[in-house]
Design a protein around this nucleic acid. Structure first.
Lengths: 231, 231
DNA sequence: GATAAAAAATGACATTTATCACGTACCTTT
DNA sequence: AAAGGTACGTGATAAATGTCATTTTTTATC
């Protein structure tokens, strides 16, 4: 459903826009544009220059980078309250990734001028965004090191735990994020066939179990060990 | 040599501190602490919580992440005018990487309170830092995709071009950054032995040449093709 | 429910990369 | 010059992963 107003939008209070002050919320509300996207639709396309950002109201979005060989890489997932497009906008670069809806997704578009206005007028808001990007940079360097140093098996274990932490589980204890095998492969950075075999192995070895289409984590400790998580 | 004052520091004008205003420069100057580091010395240590940041005055610093198996990963390189430690500081997290001097390095330490004071009082400064981190995030996602999708050979070619773009060449056209074989391997994300063989191959195939200890790029176009750079 | 299309799975095989073991070159210190 | 350390390099082999061809299963569509 379309929110009546940003002032009462529950999702806004999850998003960076929670740090807007007083009439800035009205400003946001006056200029935002609510929109819906079907599964598979593009919110943003790699290579283009964004004219604004999206704030996801509901749904799940994957950020994908098209490699030269036709293979794609899923860089990260976004969900309720996440902002997308601001990196390229602020860096003044074309988008380095595309944003694709994985479910039916609702999102509000916020024009660049409006967002940049907030940054100019509201120091604390800029600072909060800066903190957010710093956190994401730390996350990015962890993922980079995993990709550089770990085997496909280790990475797969790691992503299981990461996705569980990020998206939680449903009532049966299954990962609350459905991914196709090819998407798993694009996330882990391997061939779909290799990934399929790996999932079967993990299942045989009792780390995970399949409930319908979904996966249940049976042995988080074992997975953490396999992933060589340092903590 | 120690700079007399931040106001006239040539390196500051390369750094984010170029966006400070009026008396903020004096504030910076009053609280910064000049320091020197020998080759191999740690400026920051993974896992610790930083009490401030460093602004590199001269020298080269590598940011390394220690993997579980003892193997390390070089996440990125920093040089004159680059700030380090601000990610963890702003994210409020322990450092996810260590900073190690590769040369004799001079750097000014800036206490956390002073830096945070600038963020609070100077909106445009925060915004500039935000732009910088967004740029780094874009860079990070490119590297992530390379690590996920490309072979060691392709990545090696890519890093040659990346390092040349970043650090330039000396008078003989050689990469102006000396890396040990093991450091190359830690950067590319492979075993040292594999990397050694690869360098020999690239040399045999005429992509690069060795001049003393350094490498000269003979065929940048060929390397770009091998790296499957999309542009 | 029949049919087509997409996704998942499997097998055989080639290729890439890691690992271990060892030898060589170079640099520093004595 | 001798000795020891570090970085560099090579060879043989094993393990991991990619690729291609094909089959089975699931899902979507009429």
């Amino acid at each position: 459903m379309e929110p009546f107003t940003c002032a009462t939008c529950a999702t806004r209070s999850l998003s960076p826009f929670q740090h807007l002050q007083g009439d800035e919320v009205d400003e946001l509300c006056a200029h935002k544009r609510f929109g819906q996207f079907q599964k598979g639709e593009f919110l943003l396309e790699e290579g283009r220059t964004p004219r604004g950002v999206y704030c996801i109201q509901s749904g799940r979005v994957k950020m994908v980078h098209a490699g030269a060989s036709g293979r794609e890489h899923i860089v990260r997932f976004l969900t309720d309250g996440d902002l997308l497009g601001y990196r390229a906008l602020l860096a003044g670069e074309p988008l380095s990734v595309s944003a694709v809806a994985m479910d039916k997704t609702s999102a509000c578009f916020v024009p660049a001028e409006v967002l940049l206005g907030f940054f100019k007028s509201n120091g604390p808001f800029s600072l909060e965004m800066l903190k957010l990007t710093c956190h994401e940079l730390a996350e990015a360097s962890r993922i980079m090191s995993s990709l550089a140093q770990k085997s496909v098996r280790e990475r797969t274990a790691e992503f299981f735990l990461m996705l569980q932490a990020r998206f939680g589980t449903d009532d049966q204890g299954c990962l609350a994020l459905d991914l196709k095998r090819s998407e798993w492969a694009e996330l882990v950075g391997t061939a779909t066939e290799s990934l399929i075999r790996l999932l079967a192995e993990l299942e045989d070895d009792g780390y995970i179990a399949r409930v319908g289409k979904r996966f249940q984590i049976k042995d988080p400790h074992g997975l953490a060990e396999m992933a060589r998580l340092e903590d």
